[in-house]
Write a protein that binds this DNA or RNA. Structure first.
Lengths: 235, 235
DNA sequence: ACAAAAGTGTTGTTAGTACACCCATGA
DNA sequence: TCATGGGTGTACTAACAACACTTTTGT
């Protein structure tokens, strides 16, 4: 090994994932209570160690799978946390990832071996979380809001067929505010990313609301080309 | 030490900093050619190892200082790179930071012990860079553009007193495009973040251009409150 | 028949875009 | 006097914000 490398200190590297979910009404967060030696009773994000030969996102996915049984969740890197005191046992750098899922889609699949549990965002205030996980969550909420303000990212949090009022509820949950429904539906439909279906959702309201699905082809095209929206949005 | 920690693999953690500079005309990038054993002749970002007891940003600042003598540069975390093969000598996770500085302000201070050198962005194409540093730079450019499209971040790249045409050149360099000067100055002045000074810049043009400075108080206020721009920008 | 949620249109205001001429000065 | 870059105004268009009534249907 090269001299230059030989005398460097190696350091624990952890991955922590923040999983947001929407149940049709509230925005939720998936936490686990792990059966590990330290902090046995503390709720925490889905976390684990980086293994040799593993990519970062790959490790985050594996850990999420091991703790909850969830697979094929698109995880996005959020931020790296490296305060020397963040883990009192030993200095650890943690790389945080986050994802958005639809609670209903995954309810059956989530294993409860490690006591995984959905918390609504307001429940968090009273809760004590491991290490700096609260700061991670706050940053993730900020990023989620930012992303939702740019992309119609919310689609990923809904079932394949959904109604405009459902989508509005989701955005209202993300931004903790309320929108005018006329302006909301106009704005959403003006993207022409939604396809109106013949069916109506029944049961929730007396009248029933039309179901829509995402035109995935258009959606891909539009949001894989970032370039077109940058220059003139500022100047 | 806890069992849970004892058997984990520790890993090298590096910090790499991407330093953008503006010289009044072009957007540049600071690279070094380090006298290290491996890759002696390759240009690279300002990189080094995380030491015990150091925060991540703190380490990035120290490394930047050691390689260039620059201090008091605000570094912002960009992304973490952890491909198992990214460093062929040993598996290393690298956390990338970036910063924007005004070339003229720091020209005297930059030490050239390690052969630090400004490259204009177009020069990069032909250049071979260490490891995945090219990908880091590309991501940093993307982020810089995004930030500039939201905030008037460009102010940090200019001297304390600057002219509107200088600012326009900077934005044109960042976005690799050109803007209508009437619309540009209207847009910039409409933020009322600039204070018009009595003095003119002479020498560059025959007529001379009025100098402006940033109203730092307003600037702080406006861009520390993110919340107000989110909801209605989407809905 | 009535309660509860769905759906829809108009108007005023604001921000964005495209475009062309005169001004001040040094050489 | 002329070449160079600095500075400004207007008219058109598109997006946004505020606002209230009618429709459907289950009970």
């Amino acid at each position: 090994m090269l001299e230059e490398y030989r005398y460097q200190t190696r350091c624990l590297v952890a991955l922590d994932s923040i999983i947001f979910g929407f149940d049709g009404d509230e925005l939720k967060l998936l936490l686990v209570r792990r059966g590990v030696e330290a902090n046995r009773e503390t709720w925490s994000l889905m976390g684990g160690w980086l293994q040799p030969g593993e990519g970062l996102g790959q490790a985050a996915s594996r850990i999420l799978y091991e703790l909850t049984n969830l697979t094929n969740i698109y995880l996005e890197q959020l931020y790296s946390f490296g305060d020397p005191q963040r883990d009192p046992v030993e200095r650890t750098v943690s790389i945080a990832y986050f994802a958005l899922i639809n609670v209903a889609d995954y309810e059956q699949k989530i294993s409860h071996t490690y006591d995984a549990h959905w918390f609504s965002l307001n429940q968090l205030d009273g809760l004590d979380l491991l290490f700096d996980h609260k700061a991670m969550i706050e940053l993730a909420i900020e990023k989620l809001r930012y992303k939702a303000s740019q992309h119609p990212i919310g689609f990923e949090l809904l079932p394949e067929k959904f109604t405009i009022p459902q989508l509005q509820k989701l955005y209202e949950a993300i931004f903790a505010t309320s929108f005018d429904k006329r302006n909301f539906s106009r704005k959403i439909l003006s993207t022409s990313l939604l396809v109106k279906l013949k069916e109506k959702q029944k049961g929730y309201s007396k009248k029933g609301a039309f179901l829509y699905s995402v035109d995935t082809e258009k959606y891909q095209k539009q949001f894989n080309s970032f370039l077109n929206f940058i220059p003139n949005s500022f100047i």
